[in-house]
Write a protein that binds this DNA or RNA. Sequence first.
DNA 1: TTCTAACATGTAACCGGTTACACATCAAAA
DNA 2: TTTTGATGTGTAACCGGTTACATGTTAGAA
Lengths: 328, 328
Amino acid sequence: MSTIKDVANEANVSVATVSRVLNNNGYVNEDTRKKVLKAIEKLDYKPNAVARSLFKKQSKTIALIVPDIKNPFFPEIARAIEDVLNNNDYTLILCNSDEHEDKEKKYFDVMKQKYVDGVIIVTSTLAPNYIEKNNIPIVSLDRPIHQSIPSVSVNNYEGAKEAVQYLKAIGCKKIAHVRGPVSVINADERYKGYLSEVCNEPWFSEEFIINGNYNVLETAKATMVLLSKHRDIDGIFSGNDYMALGVLKAATQMGIRIPQDLSLIGFDGIQLCELTSPEITTMAQPIYELGESAAKLLLNMIEGKAVNPAQQEFKVSLKIGQSTKVLR
Amino acid sequence: MSTIKDVANEANVSVATVSRVLNNNGYVNEDTRKKVLKAIEKLDYKPNAVARSLFKKQSKTIALIVPDIKNPFFPEIARAIEDVLNNNDYTLILCNSDEHEDKEKKYFDVMKQKYVDGVIIVTSTLAPNYIEKNNIPIVSLDRPIHQSIPSVSVNNYEGAKEAVQYLKAIGCKKIAHVRGPVSVINADERYKGYLSEVCNEPWFSEEFIINGNYNVLETAKATMVLLSKHRDIDGIFSGNDYMALGVLKAATQMGIRIPQDLSLIGFDGIQLCELTSPEITTMAQPIYELGESAAKLLLNMIEGKAVNPAQQEFKVSLKIGQSTKVLR
DNA sequence: TTCTAACATGTAACCGGTTACACATCAAAA
DNA sequence: TTTTGATGTGTAACCGGTTACATGTTAGAA
């Protein structure tokens, strides 16, 4: 690899001049510029990003911290983010936290040591003041942490209400809920949305709420228990699409037909919804847009641009599949 | 952030001594070491990874280049890799190539500019000599490129044969194949494995081979055409699990029952296989192990350790689900 | 007692860029 | 003709580490 010095020698100028050409700042005579450009071409010179980072204290790199990239929601998000970064000459570092605060903090340390310019994080465990004292541009995605921290998320509460309302509208008489992990903010919000819609119904019972922990197999098991005890449940609102797979599995195994016997609605709108049979009805988040917005927001923060709505909330929209009865 | 100079001042020693303590090399008096350690503690000093990189010409970072992280095979691989890296104080950069050579090359340029220590790549488009001239430790994963380039993959040909043999064993009389993209090496190998098992069968016809391009919707469409034309097909070997979802979808839509009317076997063994109903029978790759091995192999190469079997081939194993008739 | 090698520490060059500053030129304005 | 500001370029400090080399001490061997 040739260095800026090699280019300077080749072009018979100083490194400062080469640097000026490279960065397009300062005064450079047109002929000199051409000479330098020719030398760069000849030597196939690529500036050393590390040296540049050291001086500039920034690395053109951002980190994405998610609980587990194997959860199919996150690859879709990650893809959107990477696309934006790629278009802006940034690089993406991927981190799996397993919802574990220690791992998150360890990643933060590394990020700072590597001059990572910013972080997009999906977390429920990290305290706002820890983040603030780290003093690194950050966007929380999918799960708002605190007003003080810019975030990109959706209206989970209203979305959940809408999901349950839809189940009611198509004629469901007893609606259960598979909730996500306790104290994961979006799971809590969706749970509250469900609750607000059903708590005053005469048929409602606490037993209609089970915890699937955003885990498919756990959900399948719990659903089997639920459905064998309450055979008259005819609607299930699943806290996310991934768990809806578990519900689908349990129902199929028990010979319960979806949607004839049981209507199922999920949340998220991951691509997988369209690939199952029946296709899963869901409250779809604009997933790609979420990732895109988070990335753009973060880049703006890094470049010091004004960031007006620091808390961006997108709307979810009903995406009707085949897992719910047809509305007449 | 405090620097090594701050620590040196605090401990009343030179930066060289601090560096020696940090890296545990050279001679350092025990008392001095303690003084330095105390200063480090007091200042909460973390060495600057960028400065270190500049001198050492290495970044403790490796890149993973995959076609598209949204394909569920890759997050599982990525997770395995990240785990290994995390345990070895390396960081993972994620790149999506979309099977596009230009993007791959662009990533390579960036990698070199950032002193990325090595690359794990899933590619069909990159030429061996391009890779070699880049002179950066590399492991090709899932798809061997050339003998000269270390790789981690599975026995696709034999695996495919075994899959078809199993379909025969359970009594399938006419077996079709949904193949992956032409000139993607593993898709080609699986196709050849299928062909070697069926080309001499009296019932065989070229029409039994359709191209799903590793894409679910495309597969679903092609499968519907196939199955409406050839109603007597009773077995399908899908080139991967992801496309098997498409077959499943098509069959369900057409009222063809799996496995009663049609047995379906996939390839890969992604987690999704267990989450559908019926669960998909598949030739399972040891996915986590593959990622793990690729990462360990690469780290060994980076650290200059001998790498004996530069071409690691794992075996796939039949994982019986519910999408194939029961063997009696 | 002198020599030698292990121990201990500091100085400064180096990694490969960026940029503040100094200096020189030149054309237009005064 | 002198002043001035825009233009053009080079020198060297700096970013924050690592390490070759120099220097000095000390203890055991000769």
